[in-house]
């Protein structure tokens, strides 16, 4: 089913939805000398900008940087957030990233109560990308920036026209006020955009998962990570990085983001550190995304969103790293994945 709106109707729709739901969407935020686009809860639809990919991923809605686990003793109820959230304007890279988080936190053998609660309380409306940015490469990784059926509703904007493709009829009621649209017009937009993304010239021919032993013991890690400062920027901006730690505050246990880029992440109380140098830590990050997670869950843990590069203080580009891995493995020849 397709529903259409113009910007005025969209505003009316969001105003109506905001009576029953909290609405989060990309908004422009002034951050000191930087102007950023972030996902935030909004007060009025006028704040929303769909202009470009937001600078931070919507990860924080599902895995907050700090999350209180209420009290320390088991059996305590979590806070039930009664009002659901509509998370508006999530692009393919971030939708695919959620699948990685689902792999981990909604594992068959283990369900993370906190993550599950957020996941159930948030209805996502996806957004079709109209153009890439210099740092993103989702297409190279087999992700379609133009259309994605993993959100119940997926939005295409062209000028003043908004086309909502409803993938999950259960959520069609959200758009009941809007008239139905024409499949043909939408197909046209998809085709147009697919053509514009086809120009992407970054190609990769990597076995997935990367062969663990061969890639791990490759000689290039020291050179590739030479400039890595060891801050946590790439991991904190990454839509799929989920490593976490616990901390205590006045007897209450909380969970917080942590980063494999930090030396303290793996350092034992005895002082022993299994990953003592930065190249080992950088290797861990790349291997986890391109070898270990695919090995365990059959999915790359990178969606090519490019935020690691956009925000890296030394502009370390994961594409150059992957290219080096590619040519090394090709040189080695016949290396089978896994």
């Amino acid at each position: 089913m397709i529903k259409v709106a113009n910007s005025e109707e969209l505003e009316q729709l969001l105003n109506r939805l905001s009576q029953d739901y909290k609405i989060a969407a990309p908004v422009v935020k002034r951050k000191g000398r930087k102007e950023r686009i972030e996902y935030e809860y909004i007060d009025s639809p006028g704040e929303i900008t769909l202009e470009r990919q937001p600078d931070s991923s919507p990860k924080k809605f599902f895995l907050p940087q700090n999350e209180r686990m209420e009290v320390e003793v088991a059996g305590a109820p979590g806070t039930e957030d009664k009002q659901k959230t509509i998370l508006f304007g999530v692009r393919s890279c971030d939708l695919e990233a959620l699948k990685v988080l689902d792999d981990v936190f909604l594992d068959d053998n283990y369900i993370d109560a906190y993550y599950q609660q957020h996941r159930e309380n948030i209805i996502i409306i996806g957004l079709s990308c109209s153009e890439g940015k210099p740092s993103c490469f989702c297409g190279t990784l087999g992700i379609d920036p133009v259309k994605n059926d993993s959100a119940p509703i997926f939005l295409y904007q062209r000028g003043d026209r908004y086309y909502f493709k409803v993938y999950d009829e259960e959520y069609a009621y959200l758009l009941e006020d809007l008239p139905e649209g024409d499949e043909g017009e939408l197909a046209e937009i998809v085709e147009e955009r697919a053509a514009s993304f086809a120009e992407n010239n970054f190609t990769l021919d990597l076995p997935v998962p990367l062969p663990e032993e061969t890639t791990f013991s490759a000689p290039f890690w020291g050179d590739l990570a030479e400039k890595c400062l060891g801050c946590g920027v790439c991991t904190y901006y990454c839509p799929t990085c989920y490593c976490f730690g616990f901390f205590w505050e006045q007897g209450e246990k909380s969970r917080c983001w942590d980063s494999c880029m930090f030396a303290s992440f793996t350092k034992h109380a005895s002082g022993h550190n299994p990953r003592r140098s930065q190249d080992q830590r950088y290797r861990q990050r790349v291997m986890h995304k391109y070898s270990y997670h695919p090995e365990n869950y059959g999915r790359l843990a990178c969606t090519g969103c490019g935020r690691c590069l956009d925000n890296c203080p030394v502009n370390l580009d994961i594409r150059s790293v992957l290219k080096t891995v590619e040519s090394y493995l090709q040189e080695k020849g016949g290396v089978k994945s896994g």
Partner: peptide, 19 residues
């Protein structure tokens, strides 16, 4: 082996070696 196990469930990432 002894690593800096924290969550105990193979999630938090501290004790990850290979896959």
């Amino acid at each position: 082996l002894e690593m800096k196990m924290s969550c105990g469930l193979g999630k938090c990432g501290r004790c990850n070696i290979g896959h």
